[in-house]
Design a binder for these strands. Structure first.
Length: 290
DNA sequence: CATTACCTGCAA
DNA sequence: TTGCAGGTAATG
């Protein structure tokens, strides 16, 4: 469920954890949330540690502990991190509870059990950095980067954008939003992007992600931040969801449509995001018109 | 490349 | 009852 803006919203909402000490650990029925680490080992390693800082990279959240170890969290589809009073009963689908010395606690809950909270000992090499492209809001991500990266690629632009090695943090919602803003068809072969397309798409990606953060993420079914608060960005989406429902394009009024790209439902406007076929002389596309 | 697996709940 | 869901790793 959570993409970059949702994970960033969680990170910000968890700032009250900074400086607090983990006084105990409870692990639920699904110990697989810890990956390979045995529950008893995990408990021994993190108990007594305090939270030094919270960082995010792409869709990953890093909880740095005061001995240089860290917890690497990925929420995947339905993971949630929540702060709750220590004596609150376990919430539904709770797999992990870290009790804190101030009477509060952090819970990890995950209906579908895809997410992970991994313990990384002090000095561990970062296991995700090499697999991630630039942050969409960083200067490293711009039209030139996207243009160069997409050269000679035949994959649909949507697939390229979903690949975390290209850009870190976009998922199905924000890719559809970025493509709509840039007026690009999700199936356009990435290598066919012009420099101008790439420039527009990079700006659009930044815009979609920035709006997502500003509105504290999209809550459609599961997402809540660390305080249990829903996001508001579902009210500011231009593309995602509108194709399936056949709602009009907010730019040109044409009914939106959808298809499957890279295994994901993709919502777009068939008019202003029309696919250009470079082989044909006749303009299949009217995207210049919009 | 595209498809499947990993899980569960819920809407159609 | 079937199909779908915001993600990713492992398959053909």
């Amino acid at each position: 469920m959570p993409e970059l803006p949702e994970v960033e919203t969680v990170r910000r909402s968890l700032m009250p954890l900074i400086g607090k000490t983990i006084s105990g650990v409870e692990i639920g029925a699904f110990a697989g949330v810890l990956g390979e680490t045995a529950p008893e080992a995990f408990s021994a390693l993190v108990s007594g540690r305090s939270v030094a800082c919270l960082r995010r990279r792409g869709k990953y959240l890093f909880i740095d502990l005061d001995d240089e170890s860290l917890l690497l969290v990925h929420l995947r589809m339905t993971g949630q991190l929540l702060i709750a009073p220590c004596d609150d009963p376990p919430r539904r689908f709770e797999h992990l509870k870290l009790a804190l010395d101030d009477g509060s606690s952090v819970r990890y809950a995950d209906q579908r059990k895809f997410g992970r909270v991994l313990y990384l000992p002090p000095g561990s090499p970062n296991p995700v950095e090499t697999k991630l492209g630039p942050e969409p809001l960083s200067d490293a991500f711009d039209g030139a980067y996207l243009f160069d990266y997409s050269r000679k690629r035949t994959a649909p632009i949507k697939s390229l954008l979903l690949d975390q090695r290209s850009i870190a943090g976009l998922g199905n919602i924000y890719v559809d939003e970025a493509l709509w803003l840039a007026r690009l068809h999700p199936l356009m072969p990435a290598g066919q992007l012009t420099a101008q397309d790439a420039e527009r798409l990079a700006r659009s990606g930044k815009q979609a992600i920035a709006a997502g953060i500003e509105h504290r993420g999209v809550t459609i079914s599961h997402f809540v931040d660390g305080a249990g608060e829903s996001g508001e960005n579902q009210h500011h989406l231009n593309a995602y969801g509108r194709g399936r429902r056949g709602e009009p394009c907010l730019r040109c009024g044409t009914p939106m449509t959808w298809l499957t790209v890279g295994g994901r439902t993709s919502h777009f406007c068939p008019s202003c995001q029309a696919l250009v076929d470079p082989e044909s002389r006749g303009p299949i596309s009217n995207r210049r018109r919009c």
